[in-house]
Design a protein around this nucleic acid. Structure first.
Lengths: 228, 228
DNA sequence: GCAAAAGTGTTGTGTCTACACCCATGT
DNA sequence: ACATGGGTGTAGACACAACACTTTTGC
């Protein structure tokens, strides 16, 4: 029991990466009660003098040795009084994204889990994890958030696989390329990738033009008049 | 000084309404230090045993006598250590919307302020207020959130004025009607509104089909293949 | 030559803006 | 009659999905 007049405050993160062609979440196994042994999201207490974002970055770096988080954004703050069985605790959840290919060394109690086989999660962490995936899926449509899932350079078919894995449905390489080029989200580097055994035309290499989140489709159905 | 190991936690709300054809925010004048006399967002401490949403609803109902909040959603949680000069305080901000026409009785220290003449605000409340307006503007494009700004029944020109005031730019009644009808967001009641002095064709009366937030335009540019 | 993989051309559909025009009422 | 405000018809721009077709490589 920490004390009585104020809630404890923790930062948590659903850290997602595409590994082996599937969207996966970084989880660690709790070493103490409550939920001893259950899988849960990385995070920890907010300390005096730090912001929530600094808090979650510190906890990620210290506990899990993940410094390669390419994008981090706040998801929501959970305050259900019964969410922690012993403590009055408020949690602010973040979504973190790690580019494909990065393979940080993990402590023994930490592992990646594909969404297709998520274990039972402690507290309300399952809800948070699913909310993170939803946020990612939505933003793939109208922002350049793909930069945080992709390596620095890639071919369209590689990018197509990433998008398909994150979205959960197939996507056409043809149209993906056209949409992202039209919007100026990606650009050709000018280089080509040599084909594998069995041949095939060499693929053009692309990169994201920005590596910070930008809204690329204002989808402003109710948009201001053109003239004027 | 409340205590040391945990931050205090407050809930705040940017409560918006369209009044006199302009988007306005509900503010109250602080009665104590810090920022004595400055305008600020309504809200207050989170109490043990309640959720943040319950907390902000309670504070709104008690302090400001606004029970007519048609929509309430979480905006973000602010944790900058220096945001409160004396206290280690975390704040979770909400966006609240009140339909046009409702005119709740307000205490003497509370008043509506149009965005065009926002006073200096205490703490980081200006940032929150602007974030609330941005959230509203975005959601007007792809959800039915207009239900929370409009009265139960309205004509298209009345609705057009509300959208224009909230969006900050003009909008065509013709196209607004077609977009909202095509998406099934509004429907005709079958009644007509008598024209004012000076004549004119009687206007058809409409209502929103749902009075809870729904996403009406999935804007899923990267959408699943049609045939499967 | 042939299979494999990448990329382009083209067609059709749906959604939106803009604007001309028609409708129903008061004076 | 005619001014006033409401509503419909329609054309053009654009973004997208789907799919046929062409290009460039390995074997």
């Amino acid at each position: 029991m920490r004390q009585s007049t104020n809630p404890t405050h923790v930062s948590l993160a659903a850290v997602l990466q595409i590994r082996d062609g599937a969207l996966q979440a970084l989880l660690w196994q709790r070493a103490r009660e409550p939920f001893l042994g259950a899988w849960s999201l990385p995070g920890g207490y907010l300390e005096r003098g730090e912001t929530l974002e600094r808090s979650i970055r510190t906890h990620l770096a210290a506990k899990v040795d993940v410094r390669e988080v390419a994008h981090l954004e706040q998801l929501e703050t959970l305050s259900e009084p019964a969410r922690h069985p012993q403590e009055w605790q408020v949690a602010t959840a973040y979504l973190g994204l790690v580019p494909t290919g990065v393979d940080p060394e993990l402590p023994a109690d930490t592992a990646w889990h594909p969404f297709s086989r998520l274990p039972e999660l402690a507290f309300d962490h399952r809800e948070i994890t699913l909310a993170g995936r939803e946020r990612l899926r939505a933003k793939l449509s109208y922002t350049n958030i793909g930069f945080a899932l992709a390596p620095a350079e890639f071919t369209i078919s590689e990018l197509r696989e990433l998008y398909a894995a994150a979205l959960g449905h197939d996507i056409s390489a043809t149209n993906l390329q056209r949409v992202l080029l039209r919007r100026g989200v990606i650009e050709a580097t000018g280089e080509r990738r040599a084909p594998g055994r069995g041949g095939g035309r060499p693929a053009a290499v692309f990169r994201f033009r920005a590596r910070r989140l930008e809204v690329t489709d204002e989808f402003a159905v109710l948009r201001p008049p053109a003239n004027k």
